[in-house]
Design a protein around this nucleic acid. Structure first.
Lengths: 210, 210
DNA sequence: AGAAGTAGTGAATCAGCATTCATTCTTTCT
DNA sequence: AGAAAGAATGAATGCTGATTCACTACTTCT
């Protein structure tokens, strides 16, 4: 044997991979998955198109990884918010608020993650992550039921409703057709939007108006 | 001039068009939009592929028409349910129930309409129709507020939440990956599902547990 | 130095289906 | 009957970008 992979090489490859991932992320954040071309990504990352395929099976696989990365970040934020102080209902409210506000801050990426039509493998990730959100919410709802601050109910189902209500409410404001600036997309409006989404959700959960 | 379009011809053409529409509908109901091939549709309708294009600009346009047709049917049902007897909250509940039950009865078509990744022109129709649902619900909510059976709230926002909560709750049960029969998709389960969706929605709306 | 193996390259290929269009068949009129 | 127009046909085309792979350039070892 004359050549064996050495630490230096491993690192160099890892760096290239990271660069590819970062550039794909950037492309997706700019225009969603559909418009992210492999050639463009390769160009940005300073590698040949073929090199992409030494790091990922296919474009779809690359996208799936980006999806995972980006969504995990959001899931973590929600999980974090659910670990804050206060009773379960308050923590849920805080988490929902975080979710919505972060989405409105990075609308193209949020749209890509929530609503853009994507290929099967990526769609699979999306379903998995919707489930991840629902799981988090479900646990919190159960805690709330224990604590007594949330009335007894089908926690699983309610959490799914939460995910749906918030996703749907964001789809309009996020979709790239209309949110091309200069329209009614002000910070104030966003605040109002978030407030009323949460109002509905919390009420759906607790049956309490505030 | 030697040939001018006559009534007989007009009819014959209209019939061919209808046949194309019906066969496309069937294809979509069987496997969604993505898997509906123009050649297959032409075959079923007993015309040549080229003929499709004498009736529709493009596959996308044909699909957009099917989408409209299928969704309008559902929208009408919801509108009808909202015109039944009872106070606004009761009528809303009935409408939501109709919507969910019908979707679960024709799962592939419902999935195609609600959640299948589709091309831009069809996606546009989808957004338009989600708005149509939201409009219907919004009106009913306003009526409920007038009547006093629903507390004051942002009717637009709440209606969007309703659409989202119900759509999301149905996505799991509808998606073609898992609902291939012989699993837990029984009528009983469906009833429970529908009940808990509606419980959440009505409570979100009225703040009242029942 | 040079052998043996790995990483990187990017122009050429491929795939899969919607769409076209030159041609044939029908209908309608004089 | 036959001319003029339209409708229908379906095999061939075209498009678009992902993917491949024969080749070159490096790395690592003896």
């Amino acid at each position: 044997m004359a050549y064996r992979e050495t630490e230096k090489m491993r690192q160099r490859k890892a760096e290239a991979r990271k660069r590819i991932v970062a550039c794909t992320y950037q492309c997706v954040a700019e225009g969603g998955f559909r418009s992210a071309r492999v050639t463009r990504i390769a160009g940005l990352a300073g590698v040949a198109t073929g090199t992409i395929y030494r790091h990922f099976e296919s474009r779809e696989d690359l996208f799936a990884e980006i999806f995972r990365l980006a969504t995990q970040r959001e899931v973590d934020k929600v999980a974090e918010a659910l670990n804050s102080d206060g009773n379960a209902a308050e923590r849920l409210e805080w988490a929902l608020r975080q979710f919505a506000e972060r989405a409105l801050k990075g609308p193209t990426m949020a749209w890509a993650l929530i609503a853009e039509p994507v290929d099967p493998k990526v769609e699979e990730e999306r379903l998995a992550y919707r489930k991840a959100y629902a799981d988090l919410f479900e646990t919190a709802i159960r805690e709330g039921i224990e604590e007594g601050c949330i009335p007894d109910q089908n926690a699983r189902q309610s959490s799914t409703c939460l995910v749906g209500a918030i996703a749907e409410s964001l789809v309009g404001p996020l979709s790239p057709t209309q949110s091309s600036k200069t329209d009614s997309t002000t910070d104030d409006n966003n605040d109002l939007l978030v407030d009323s989404i949460i109002h509905f959700c919390i009420q759906g959960l607790t049956g309490t108006r505030r």
